[in-house]
Structures are given as structure tokens and as C-alpha cells.
């Protein structure tokens, strides 16, 4: 392989069809992977490509997208020696919110995965302590999903027809 091979090419060579797309969003390279490959991708990036730092991870919910792309999980990795930052994404449907944990690869992921569970209901197999973290444990819904309104829907004293979202 030549010196100029991009990270996208290298990942495509290793993971083949599991790499669904490569895009650039502002100053970030974004790779979309199939959910099942994600853990191996993270291990590969850490061990072979030097992405030694997990900057952040978070979920998001797109209720208007097609069924298979309703929930998104995002990971941001940082390579300290080459100062390269990338974003990994994977999409999934509401029925299948199970991912593999990466908290044995990066210890930082432990609480961040719990946060993703707390707010969106993602579950991470292999996580040592898959419990809610910021909200109380008795809570029976996942508040950052779009179907949960911020305000009490029974109120009729606030009309948001023109300026509400």
C-alpha cells in the first residue's frame, strides 16, 4: 500500500462491506459502519491506527427517518500522535438497540454508555454496570427520545403554534 492511502481506504480494505459510507462533515471524517462490525472497528483503530483517545460518544434519535435509521450512535476518536479526529456512526432501528460495549477498550466509555442508555435506551452487551446514571432508576422512559415532550402536554396556557418547534 502506498504512503498516501487514506484512512477510509484502509478501513474499506479491512472491513469491506461493513463500511457503509465515508463522508467529511466540516472538519471531521465520518465513517458509517454496520452495527455488528463497530466493536472490531474500534479495536482495529486503537491498535493499528493509533486512535488512543475516545473523545465522546452519544446517541441521537431521528423519528422521521426510515425505520432502519431511526437511532444513531456516534463515536469520536482522536489520534494524539497524528492529531487526527474521526467520527464513527452506526444506525439502527427501534427494535434493535443492542450494541457491543467498548468500555473494556476505552475506560472512558463506561459512563458515556450508561448515559446513552439512560437517555435513549441503547443497551450495551458486556457492559459491567448497565444502569441509569443521571436520572433516577425508577424512571420508565428514555427522555431524550423525540416522542417525549419537554413540557407537560396537558397545559393549554401556552400556545406554540407560531414559534414552537
Amino acid at each position: 500500500m502506498s504512503e498516501n492511502t487514506t484512512l477510509g481506504d484502509k478501513l474499506a480494505a479491512v472491513f469491506g462491506d461493513a463500511l457503509l459510507s465515508t463522508t467529511t462533515d466540516y472538519d471531521f471524517q465520518v465513517f458509517e459502519f454496520h452495527k455488528s462490525a463497530l466493536r472490531n472497528v474500534v479495536i482495529h483503530l486503537k491498535e493499528q491506527e493509533g486512535f488512543n483517545y475516545l473523545t465522546t460518544l452519544c446517541g441521537s434519535h431521528f423519528p422521521d427517518a426510515e425505520k432502519e435509521r431511526e437511532f444513531c450512535m456516534m463515536y469520536q476518536l482522536h489520534n494524539f500522535s497524528s492529531n487526527e479526529r474521526i467520527r464513527l456512526k452506526t444506525f439502527m432501528s427501534r427494535e434493535d438497540l443492542m450494541l457491543e460495549t467498548i468500555c473494556d477498550i476505552y475506560d472512558a466509555a463506561n459512563w458515556m454508555e450508561r448515559e446513552a442508555y439512560d437517555f435513549f435506551g441503547f443497551t450495551f452487551s458486556g457492559h459491567p454496570n448497565m444502569k441509569r446514571i443521571l436520572n433516577m432508576e425508577e424512571m420508565n422512559y428514555f427522555p431524550l427520545r423525540k416522542e417525549y415532550p419537554l413540557e407537560d402536554m396537558s397545559r393549554d396556557d401556552k400556545d406554540d403554534t407560531f414559534f414552537g418547534r
Partner: peptide, 8 residues
């Protein structure tokens, strides 16, 4: 340092 980087 290793543990600190791993812990973010």
C-alpha cells in the same frame, strides 16, 4: 498517563 488517556 496510559490510564489517564484511557479514562478520557
Amino acid at each position: 498517563a496510559d490510564r489517564a488517556i484511557s479514562y478520557g
